[in-house]
Design a protein around this nucleic acid. Structure first.
Lengths: 261, 261
DNA sequence: TAGTGGTCTAGACCACATA
DNA sequence: ATGTGGTCTAGACCACTAC
């Protein structure tokens, strides 16, 4: 029944057993890991509810409080969403009120909801071989197949974001430009639906740059217009990189917003 | 003794009493508010430990678990820091291993620790009257006194950040350029020590810009070098704005790093 | 009415730091 | 040895949601 690595009695797992054993951790961390595994293996799909705290407690043979603490951490990491009276749900990029969870670019006036959804125009989408730097970021070997896409996002008819996207070929086999252009809603939601790939966190490196002639033309600015260069690496469960995205953002009508604490 | 707004018996505060009363909230939220108040009033200074969970539980006449949950939230917001076996400490910008908590600019190679502390050169620091936009951000009236400072941060001898800082005059009376230049460690730590002002969170708006002639000269770049424009509003407790900072970052050797989740 | 997550308590034991 | 925060449990009651 229980697949707990350590018995769920009152004696917690011993620490530092001498050998470099992988991980002796608190019970709730082990439970968290097991839930994570189920999420990863697709036992519950994005948007669906996971079993109740009582059910999970019974399954893992621990108290409800321990399951609660495990779920608390998963919720803090945005992997699941709690809804009082309804249950706990697998987080999804679709159907979230915040249209684009990872996009921090906001219009200078009003908010994103006023602005409405972005118009997408996909310029290119094809299978290529990974260059050295792309393969390094995506933890592939140089020359491995990679899906590459280029597109423009426009707001209120103004081209604002130009981005290149690289995805591991094995996981995104068959991705087409039509798919990227036609899907309503966030691209990350489409990745969940059509490829079963869920991006759970990302890192961005931001710089100020000038566009080259082609980039400037696509964004309808001059080559003397400074742009934000945003390089994003998006990860799925277990810190596995699944996307590299290089974006150029116009910041004459928008700004990148960040909160520090 | 207890200054609890609502009795700490087993019956939680009723919700929605009809009138738009300020806040009926869970017990632990009320406790959190009371601890926050003590922090704010300086009952415990930055870096000091606050009373143990047991002591706080006794003071507020609630269980230790309830205090724990209150402190959990304060710790999640970086207002206090837990240290097992030692106690819970008031967060401070000084003495933190992360040298600059709010500075997200990192060297492209190596990490900040390799780079060492920034050299600061204060160009200007004086008392002025708030312009319309400054006063609006700092929740002052137009013409109210404001301390204004301008400085350059250099890393490894290379001028990298040029920033203008505005602070409410009433709270920062007597701030001098010498003070800003001579203090070892983060400026925010100096604000804590010398003025009792603790910045607890901040918001940033980031854009790509070109410098004017003076800015370019100060940063030793050409006026054709794109720079990050980072406008930061820093807040103390209760979301009171206490600083406006406008920075220009060179991103030829550094980048702005952000984590999304 | 039943089921969910949310709050609160009380007590036990553990890990860590300090004296 | 003592005191701190960290973990785990068990049970009670509440608030929200759906049927």
């Amino acid at each position: 029944m229980s697949s707990l690595p350590f018995a769920a009695d009152n004696s917690p797992a011993p620490q530092g057993a001498g050998l470099p054993t992988p991980a002796f951790s608190p019970l709730y961390q082990q439970i968290k890991g097991l839930i994570l595994q189920s999420l990863q293996q697709g036992e519950w799909k994005p948007g669906e509810s996971i079993p109740s705290e009582m059910e999970l407690a019974a399954r893992f043979r621990v108290s409800q409080g321990t399951v609660r603490k495990a779920i608390d951490e998963l919720a803090a990491e945005n992997l699941v969403v709690r809804r009082q009276g309804k249950g706990t749900f697998v987080a999804t990029h679709a159907e979230q009120h915040i249209q684009y969870r990872f996009l921090k670019l906001l219009p200078d006036t009003g908010d994103a909801s006023v602005e409405g959804p972005a118009q997408r125009s996909v310029i290119d989408c094809r299978r290529v071989r990974a260059s050295a730097d792309i393969s390094r970021v995506l933890a592939l070997r140089s020359g491995d197949p990679v899906m590459q896409a280029k597109r423009i996002l426009s707001f209120a008819g103004v081209p604002t974001i130009l981005e290149d996207i690289w995805l591991p070929g094995h996981a995104f086999k068959g991705l087409t430009g039509e798919q990227m252009a036609n899907y309503q809603g966030p691209t990350y939601a489409m990745f969940e639906m059509d490829f079963g790939v869920r991006m759970v966190r990302a890192e961005e490196k931001i710089r100020a740059v000038l566009p080259d002639a082609e980039q400037a033309q696509l964004l309808q600015v001059t080559t003397a217009t400074p742009l934000l260069s945003v390089e994003r690496i998006a990860y799925t469960y277990n810190d596995v990189p699944m996307e590299l995205r290089r974006g150029l953002y116009r910041t004459d009508t928008h700004h990148y917003r960040n909160e520090l604490s």
